[in-house]
Simulated assay, not measured.
Amino acid sequence: MAAPIDLELKKAFTELQAKMIDRQQKVKLADLQIDQLIRLQKHAKLTLSEITALPDSTRVYEGVGRMFILQSKEEISNQLTDKQKTADEKIKELEQKKSYLERSVKEAEDNIREMLLSRRAQ
């Protein structure tokens, strides 16, 4: 009679373990995306600070693929500001997603511990 219980326990344990590993990978992916967005945000901020230091009569070009398009200084500044805002919003979303996934990993770990402790108690 112990064999069916062991098989059920083993099946539940492997399912929880797979779920936990999947969530941990998603947390790492969210971390990588957050790091990438932070770099993008810093790049936009530095570029914006350099552009604002230029005189108004300076010709400013935007790189598009393999060509450059003449843009006004104001348009490029607006684009860089928008990039920063968009990156900030995405970072907030990813941090919320990451915290949810971390809680989920913690719950899966707790469930695994409970299963092992209940098995030892029997």
Rank of each mutant, 00 (worst) to 15 (best):
K90E: 14
K83W: 04
L48D: 12
A87I: 03
M67L: 09
M20T: 09
I38H: 15
P55L: 00
K85W: 00
S49L: 08
P4T: 09
A87Q: 05
L16G: 13
T52Y: 07
L54H: 04
R39T: 08
L80E: 10
L80H: 06
F68D: 03
D56Q: 09
Q25Y: 05
I91W: 15
I38M: 15
Q79T: 04
L70S: 15
E8H: 04
L94M: 10
K92Y: 03
Q71D: 11
Q24H: 04
K19R: 10
K10P: 00
A12K: 15
Q96W: 02
Q25I: 00
E8S: 06
D22M: 05
E8L: 09
L9I: 08
L29Y: 15
Q36I: 01
I76S: 06
L80Q: 07
L48A: 14
I51D: 02
A44S: 15
F68E: 07
Q17K: 12
K97S: 02
D31V: 13
Q96G: 06
V60L: 06
V64R: 08
R23C: 11
L9V: 05
A3F: 08
T47A: 11
I38T: 05
E62H: 02
T52H: 06
Q84K: 02
S99N: 09
V60N: 05
D35R: 01
T58E: 09
K73Y: 12
K83T: 01
F13N: 15
